[in-house]
Design a binder for these strands. Sequence first.
RNA 1: GGGGAGAUACCAAAGUGGCCAACUGGGGCAGACUGUAAAUCUGCUGGCUUACGCCUUCGUAGGUUCGAAUCCUGCUCUCCCCA
Length: 376
Amino acid sequence: MRFELIARDAESSARCGLVYTDHGVIETPVFMPVGTVGSVKAVYHRDLKEDIKAQIILGNTYHLYLRPGTDIIRKAGGLHRFISWDRPILTDSGGYQVFSLSESRKLSERGCTFRSHIDGSSHLFTPEGVVDIQREIGADIIMALDECPPGDSDFKYARESLQLTKRWLERGIRHFDATDPLYGYSQTFFPIIQGCVYPQLRKEAAEHAVSLDREGYAIGGLSVGEPAEVMYEMLEVIEPVLPVDKPRYLMGVGTPSNILEAIHRGVDMFDCVMPTRNARNGMLFTSQGKINIRNKKWADDFSSIDEDGTSFVDSAYSKAYLRHLFISNEILGAQIASEHNLAFYLNLVKEARRHIKKGDFVSWKESAVKRLENKL
RNA sequence: GGGGAGAUACCAAAGUGGCCAACUGGGGCAGACUGUAAAUCUGCUGGCUUACGCCUUCGUAGGUUCGAAUCCUGCUCUCCCCA
């Protein structure tokens, strides 16, 4: 993997770049749709590529390991071939699942023992093991196993958690560097910077990650309950520590304005379930603001889903019809809403790229955020 | 013509003397969702009221009772069986 910086904003830390992978080039800032189990829920690959224009998608180590399992994926020739997706894939390590499924996990120096949510069976994830699994999955970008502590963790817990994450990181890198890709194309490994809401821990985590000299760096453990302002502050602490010539990935974020604010603070890559999950639950992000399509007020609104929308579904379907589909619990409603929301997100970051290159990113962002905040 | 069963809120359906403004499901209305155990979850859904509370409501008209959606009688309507 190689990163090329092609534009830097004069008034902020925003940048535009190109991430070269063996599955194609990614323009940054980029939003990566989440496809946890090898499926961006309710969206065809064709629409993902041609309409939404997704450049890269996510998979999840925890979920794919449990089902279908690495044997099947290896037999298929890797995840790309298994799911028929020829663009880049990034896999999360399962670190977030360690956090979100915390009721049934046990952390130790060695790794994390957890119980499958599918059949209750017991499994151990180690920093080395999740590298092996991600090698077998064939992800272009592999994530380190980390612990993602809750947003309200106290300093003592956060510090100890970070030390564990750092030790795990070193083990993961050692193992990654000692192993080879299985499918003839290269893979890269991103560390994850933790440290909760404590600036000194964030700085320490960033310095440690940078000292290990990887091709990109991820920021995790944010947007887990802390106020958005705190998240922005953490980004400001980390930004000057990170090398300008490497991509930065803010994991799991976020709302449209979260993303613009993070781009402002030098972040290049994003993923979030929000556009797809909220779509399935009837919430649409539109240029007119956030709408709940199930609300009665749309019952006889025959205007298109989003007048300024860029997606096929925006021009093809009306709000009244989409509402009808949701009220009738028709699957097509979830499909249309998901396609719309992803297209909205992808177009938002595309606009951000355009304004960074044009040189008016900050003023554009400020009015965009104001519009989004007022309406969302 | 004879026999039987039943009528409860928008719909279905529980309740069969006081703990009933009435279980539950659907529908309706609104909200939440941030590295996906989510096509999920939460609240409200007779009227007035911030609330306490008050008022009206279980086909209809009476009656019994301190008290009735619940017991009795008449009426109206619905369904089933036999002729």
